[in-house]
C-alpha cells in the first residue's frame, strides 16, 4: 500500500513520497507511516525530528552511518546505533525515516 486514498493522489507519488516537501506536517507523517504499517510513538518522533534537523543543518539527506552518529550526539549514545534505528524503522531505516519525515526521495544513489 502506497497511495493512501484517492484524495491523496495529488500530494503523494506512486511510492508514497510527498511530492512537495514544503507541505509536510505531522498529520501527513502519521498517514505516511500508517501506509508503511508503522504506528508512531515518541521514540519514532524523536528520530523523525532528528532527521529533519539533519537535513536542515547539512542540506543533505541522512545516510545510515553518519545519521547513526548524529542520533548518538543529538539524543542519547545508546540510540546512536543502527540496530536501534532498525527496530523502529525496519529494513531500510534512513529511507523510511526520510519518507515519513518529508525529506527528498532518495535517488537510490548508494
Amino acid at each position: 500500500m502506497t497511495v493512501h486514498d484517492e484524495s491523496d493522489k495529488e500530494s503523494f507519488d506512486k511510492e508514497g513520497f510527498l511530492k512537495n516537501i514544503q507541505q509536510w506536517n505531522e498529520t501527513m507523517a502519521i498517514a505516511i507511516a500508517k501506509a508503511e504499517n508503522i504506528e508512531l510513538y515518541d521514540a519514532h518522533w524523536e528520530l523523525i525530528h532528528c532527521a529533519r534537523a539533519y537535513f536542515q543543518q547539512f542540506d543533505i539527506s541522512p545516510e545510515m552511518r553518519p545519521f547513526v552518529k548524529w542520533v548518538g550526539q543529538q539524543l542519547d549514545k545508546d540510540k546512536g546505533r543502527s540496530i536501534y534505528l532498525l527496530s523502529l524503522f525496519p529494513q531500510s531505516p534512513t529511507k523510511l525515516i526520510s519518507k515519513i519525515a518529508g525529506l527528498p526521495k532518495p535517488a537510490n544513489c548508494i
Binding site: 543543518q57 547539512f58 542540506d59 552511518r65 553518519p66 545519521f67 552518529k69 548524529w70
Partner: peptide
C-alpha cells in the same frame, strides 16, 4: 546564503564531514 539562488548550501554540507 545559497538559498538566495535556490541552491543547496555547500558550506552546510561541509559541516557533515565529521559525521562521515
Amino acid at each position: 546564503q545559497a538559498d538566495l539562488l535556490q541552491q543547496k548550501n555547500i558550506e552546510k554540507t561541509l559541516q557533515a564531514f565529521a559525521l562521515y
